[in-house]
Simulated scan of single mutants.
Amino acid sequence: MVTERCGNAQVAGLVSATMRVSPTLSDSEQETSAQVAARARSGDRSPYIDALRALAILRVYLLHTLWLTWLPMVFPAMPVMFALAGYLTAVSLDRGAPLRVVGSRLRRLLPPLWALAAVAVPLMVLVGWRPGLLDVTWWVAPLRNPPSSEWGGPFSLGLWYIRAYLWLVLLSPLLWWAFRRWPVGALLALPAFAVLLTSPLVDLPVSPVTDVVWSVAAYGSCWLVGYARHTGLLDRVPLAWYAFGVGVLALGAMMWLADRGEDDQLGGLAWGWAVVLLLMRARPRLDWLTQVPWLVRLIRMINARAVTIYIWHLPVLYAAGGLLTLAGLAAGKAAMLGVGTTLLVAVVLALGWVEDLAARRRPSLLPPG
């Protein structure tokens, strides 16, 4: 199984062959790269991209709520999230100055984290944590995993994703420059480096520095696939050869995982890359979504509150388990889903407006739908 290395935390993520997204849609059902580029220049968002992002957030939440062992086999949420972020960053870099793009991305990423820190750090101090100045600094600028007390672990457990995202945003102008000049070389370099770091040839010690290096290599690979989607590089590969290559990669990853175990990091990386390559080549129009207004609104709301949902879902779930225990009730899957979802909705209603401010929208209790 894919393991997402995050300092003290590891999160499983894998996709299985049950995930069927065909890149062979008919002309009436798919968009060309030229159409996508034209819409990107106009500022319109792709329903497919928004749906994938919402599905990835939902998968992360359901996995940590229900702990369904098969769920990580259905959808590799974290690789997909980094690929989507890379694609959206490429769209912005193609339209604006690199420094402005980086500033915009940081503005959207960091304020929700600061809202979490404004709650988490004082609570941890109240129960005995004595942080140094540098410890608090990482909660403001998470260039490494923000530290926490043992009691406050749930607040920081999932923030490796914010750290990795932050580094890739900061590196995005350099990655974009390299990709525009050597697209194939750049696209292959980071996966090769990640494989090298994961192989027995390199004894990579666990440290904040190596966590950054590994996550940039592993998830930067997915980030660059997003670049390749935006520029149409993936579409220039003949479909038959593309499908064959992705199939070989997926089959090799499955065989490797079958031999080494589902927690093998190298096999998990290869499997995640195969699925990301499949999803980033597909361009379904999803016109049927317009016939389901409530689903369209739900997808838009999840996208508008994606960072808040992600960074708060683990603390909320730990709180839900504590409340059920105090009430003398079993923390079963149904109870955790009900109480956890109720608490998460309450937190999103209370603090989600920070994402509106970060996006320079008028703050609202409910995001625009």
Score class of each variant (00 low, 15 high):
C222P: 06
L14W: 01
L251F: 11
L166G: 04
L351M: 13
H230I: 05
A189S: 10
A228W: 00
L286Q: 14
P147I: 01
F82T: 03
T24H: 07
D27N: 11
H230T: 03
L224C: 09
Y219T: 11
W273I: 14
L289I: 13
P368K: 10
Y48V: 09
T65P: 02
A34L: 03
V225A: 03
R39V: 04
E150G: 12
M19I: 11
L157Q: 15
D44W: 08
L224A: 08
W176A: 13
A40I: 09
V125K: 12
W177P: 01
V101W: 05
V225Q: 01
Q10M: 02
Y242F: 08
L168H: 03
S221F: 00
P112C: 01
R53K: 15
G185L: 00
G13C: 04
Y161P: 07
R181Y: 00
V292P: 00
G267H: 02
Y161M: 11
R107G: 12
P315I: 04
V121Y: 01
G185P: 02
R283N: 04
A253F: 01
L366R: 13
A350L: 12
G226K: 14
W353C: 06
I57A: 08
L357V: 13
A117P: 10
T24P: 00
W167R: 05
R53P: 15
L113V: 13
W138D: 10
P173D: 14
R297T: 12
P363L: 00
A12N: 08
S199N: 08
A327H: 04
Y227E: 06
V36D: 08
V307S: 10
S199W: 02
W271V: 04
A243N: 10
A304K: 09
R5P: 07
W271E: 10
G43H: 07
S42A: 09
I162Q: 12
L295G: 06
A258E: 15
Q291L: 12
L343C: 15
V347R: 14
A85Y: 04
E355S: 04
Y242Q: 06
V60A: 10
L337F: 12
A51V: 11
G252K: 05
L116T: 08
L324M: 01
